[in-house]
Every structure is written in C-alpha cells, then in structure tokens.
C-alpha cells in the first residue's frame, strides 16, 4: 500500500532523515516510535508532500509520489492528521469536516456519500456532534485532536498518517484517542502512526519501527518490539 524506500529529507541544508525505509501493508497499523527530534514528524511531512524529499521513493499503490505537491498527494488518497492538529479555527466543526472531503466534493476523488460519512464521524466522535456548529478554534485540545482525525478520515483515505494524536492531552483523553485508533484498525484502515507514547502505540499496532537521530534503529512485529529489552529500556521507561 505505502512503501517508503531510502527516504532522505530535511529543512534547507539541514538533513534530518537518512535513508528511511518503511512499509505499510494494506489494512495494517504500523507505528513509528522514537524520542523527540528523532525525525518521526519529518518522515510524515515528507510522505504527505509538506516538504520535498531530497532522495528516495515513496510508493502509494505502486506509484511514486515523492516530490508531488501535498494537494496532489491528498487527491491520490493520502490523509494526514498533522502534528499540532492544525484545525481551521475560524470555521465550524462541520465545515472543517467538509474540507476533509474537499477532493470528493470537487470531483477529484469519487464522491460517495459525504453526508453519511459526516454522520459516521459524529457517531465515532459524539463530542463533535454536540459542537458541530461551533468554531473549531473554540474547541478544547482533545476535541481539536478528534476533529483533526475525523477531518482526515473524511477523505476516505487509502492511507492515514497520524502524527502524535495524544500530544498535549490529559491521560483520560489519551485513552480515548487510542480506543478510537483501535476501532479504525478494526475497520481495516491502513495507518501509519507516529507516537511518543511508545507503549500505547505498540499495544495497538501490528508492526513497529524505532527511529533514532534520523535513522531506523530497529523494527519488528509490535508484540516483539514491546518485549525487546533494548526498546523497553530506551522508550518504554521500564528498563533499569
């Protein structure tokens, strides 16, 4: 589904990513864990076209999308719920969700039933239904996170990129976010999840990659990584 091969990217002259290769098979939840500044967010930004990769290939359904503009990549079916949520603060919750379906509403992707999907999002995130007419800027951090995820899902994406959905949330909300991710996984949505809460991410994921200083430091099935002593020591806070 999504195949990242030897990805090199950075900002200006600063190279952040060195030869990153990640594979996200259809219907699977793959997580990318690692400490702050390891390059996890940069990886997602390069994949969705927010920054131009300097090298490597990014294959979406076999097609190389590296170097395309982010709006073209979105139209090919990649949704990205970005770091910092980035909801449209002066627009209502409903308008934010409709914009998630922009390529469908403008016939650049099959339209399907946008209204039904809107209802589905409100079922998945009942808080958003309550606040559907409210401006997104007035939502709490947790609600904005749900909105960002729901907005990305409105694309009916082939692949969903989730960047730190738990960031800045109270523990109870973090649990809620992971419960939602579990439900999306049950619906066989293909996801690449970046998380600092490595333990929780490995709990829900099928497969995991560990990132360190812009390189891959390890990978494996999530339940194996979870019990790997080195990973436990470095990222799960359970080592000595």
């Amino acid at each position: 589904m999504l195949e990242i091969k030897n990805l090199v990217a950075g900002y200006g002259k600063v190279r952040v990513l060195n030869e990153i290769s990640i594979s996200v098979p259809a219907g699977q939840l793959v997580t990318l864990i690692g400490s702050n500044g390891a390059g996890k967010t940069t990886t997602l930004r390069a994949v969705s076209g927010m920054i131009k990769p300097e090298g490597g290939e990014i294959l979406l359904n076999g097609r190389n999308i590296a170097g395309l503009a982010s709006h073209d990549i979105t139209r090919l079916g990649m949704a990205h719920s970005p770091e910092g949520r980035k909801v449209f603060s002066t627009l209502s919750v409903t308008d934010n969700l409709l914009l998630g379906a922009y390529p469908r509403l403008t016939k650049m992707r099959p339209k399907g039933d946008v209204d039904a999907d809107l209802e589905r999002m409100f079922d998945l995130f009942p808080r958003l239904r309550e606040r559907r007419e409210q401006l997104a800027g007035t939502l709490s951090g947790g609600e904005q996170q749900m909105l960002a995820m729901a907005r990305a899902l409105m694309l009916q994406p082939e692949v969903l990129l989730l960047d730190e959905p738990s960031m800045g949330l109270a523990p109870r909300l973090v649990e809620e976010v992971f419960a939602t991710i579990k439900r999306l996984k049950a619906e066989k949505i293909t996801m690449l999840l970046v998380e600092q809460f490595a333990a929780a991410a490995l709990e829900v994921a099928d497969y995991g990659y560990v990132m360190e200083n812009g390189r891959l430091a390890g990978q494996g099935p999530a339940d194996k990584l979870k019990n790997d002593p080195a990973v436990r020591a470095a990222y799960l806070g359970t080592g000595s």
Binding site: S70, H71, A79, K86, F88, G100
Partner: peptide
Amino acid sequence: VATSNDRDAAGLMG
C-alpha cells in the same frame, strides 16, 4: 477561508 487559516493544512485537504 481554510487557506487563510492555515496554508499547510489547506494543502493537506487537497
């Protein structure tokens, strides 16, 4: 309006 709010995020919407 979305572009005015956040150009990067608007790009992500397609």
